[in-house]
Amino acid sequence: MDEAISSAAKIPRLSSTITRRTCSLMGVQIVGTGSYVPSNVVTNLQLQDQCPGCDPDWIEQRTGIRERRIAGPDESTCDLSVAAAQKAMAQAGVYAKDVDLLVVGTFTPDYHCPSTACLVQDRLTLDAPAFDISAACSGFMYAVTTAAQYVATGNSKLALVIGADCNSRIVNQTDRTIAPLFGDGAGAVLLAPGTMEQGFKSYQLAADGSGCAMLDRPAGGAKRPVDVAALEAGEHFLRMDGRNVFKWAVRTVAESIEVVLESAQMTIHDISLLVLHQANQRIIDAVATKLGISPDRIFNNVHKYGNTSAASIPLVLDEANSLGMIERGDTILMCGFGAGLTWGTSLFVW
Rank of each mutant, 00 (worst) to 15 (best):
M1E: 11
I5H: 13
S7Y: 05
P12Q: 12
L14W: 14
I18M: 14
C23L: 07
L25G: 02
L25V: 01
M26D: 00
G27A: 04
G32V: 01
V42D: 00
N44V: 04
Q46S: 04
G53W: 14
P56D: 13
Q61N: 13
Q61F: 02
G64T: 06
E67D: 04
R68T: 05
G72S: 08
G72C: 11
D79F: 03
A92F: 04
A92N: 00
G93H: 12
Y95C: 13
A96I: 09
A96N: 10
D100P: 09
T106P: 10
P109D: 10
Y111R: 11
H112Q: 12
S115V: 02
S115P: 04
A117F: 09
C118Q: 03
R123S: 12
T125M: 05
T125I: 00
P129N: 06
A135C: 12
F140N: 05
A159W: 13
A159N: 09
G163C: 13
A164H: 02
N167V: 09
S168V: 11
N172K: 10
T174N: 00
V189D: 08
V189P: 06
V189M: 09
L190I: 11
P193F: 05
K201V: 15
S202M: 11
S202K: 14
Y203T: 09
L205V: 07
A206P: 02
G209S: 08
C212M: 09
P225I: 04
V228L: 07
G234A: 03
E235M: 14
E235K: 11
F237K: 12
M240Q: 09
T252E: 06
T252A: 12
L261S: 11
E262H: 15
S263K: 03
T267P: 11
T267A: 01
D270Q: 01
R282Q: 15
V287L: 07
I298Q: 09
F299H: 15
H303N: 15
T308W: 07
S312M: 10
L315E: 01
V316Q: 05
I326H: 03
T331K: 04
G338A: 06
G340D: 04
L341H: 00
W350H: 11
